[in-house]
């Protein structure tokens, strides 16, 4: 194979931008390599986002043949249909230009789900011990490798239909903090995930867990939040 036929979804207001590109095939080539080649050799006006190129920073996620993926860790050979591939901006987020989306709604929801540290100690207190064998710590550990790439958010059909829904990443973050012995705002977190956009809007479709590039399991985290909020409902009436 000599050339890859690459289609890039350009937008939002660029009807005349080039969309079809021929990219030289390499033996070893990621989707991000392909996008970079186009930007450097074919069309310098192409906008996209990346930083670390090793699957840690979470900034290069795009839709590849309609599937949300971390492009720096996705080999083009795995996603080619014949010699063609279509690359677009992440779903469920406003497009700024070409492959760069506005991540603000994603991170705003992260904060709205109380996905921030709620400490109770001061610098004068001794460091709180964390027992790695504790069951709750295991639950927290399962979710903390999230790199905020928004692949789960783009994969979620509930977010598509219900724009207020906080989404899998934010809710998984809330779940890790709920299980973190260092976090002191249990009721505030339960309150935050019980509102109009909260965990109860999840239909358990499971795309978040299916597409997470880090093999995390937001679906189970959200199920955990549903369980804990239900318990709290019977105990506290809300």
């Amino acid at each position: 194979m000599q050339n890859l036929r690459v289609t890039i979804e350009r937008g939002p207001d660029q009807p005349n931008a080039q969309r079809e590109f021929d990219v030289p095939a390499q033996a070893n080539q990621t989707v991000l390599d392909v996008v970079s080649w186009i930007q450097q050799n074919a069309d310098p006006t192409l906008s996209y986002r990346f930083a670390c190129r090793v699957g840690m920073c979470g900034s290069c996620a795009m839709m590849v043949n309609g599937v949300p993926r971390w492009t720096c860790r996705t080999h083009i050979s795995k996603v080619l249909e014949g010699d063609s591939v279509t690359i677009g901006p992440l779903r469920n987020l406003p497009v700024i230009k070409d492959l760069a989306v506005d991540m603000d709604p994603f991170f705003d929801k992260w904060v709205a789900a109380e996905g921030v540290h709620h400490g109770a100690l001061t610098r004068d207190d001794p460091i709180a011990p964390v027992d790695p064998a504790e069951a709750a710590r295991g639950q927290a550990d399962a979710g903390i490798e999230c790199i905020n790439c928004s692949v789960c958010y783009a994969a979620c059909d509930t977010v598509t239909g219900n724009p207020d829904y906080l989404g899998p990443a934010a809710l998984q973050r809330a779940w890790t903090l709920l299980n973190d012995s260092k976090d002191s705002a249990r009721n505030a977190i339960l309150e935050a995930v019980s509102g109009v956009g909260g965990c109860h809007n999840c239909h358990s479709i499971g795309s978040c867990t299916a597409y997470c590039p880090n093999d995390l399991d937001p679906l189970s985290a959200i199920a955990g939040l549903k369980r804990e909020t239900a318990k709290s409902f019977f105990k506290r009436g809300r």
Partner: peptide, 12 residues
């Protein structure tokens, strides 16, 4: 759109 109360009512 669904809060905890509506969710619990529907489940119960």
């Amino acid at each position: 759109m669904l809060n905890l109360r509506l969710y619990m009512l529907q489940r119960l």
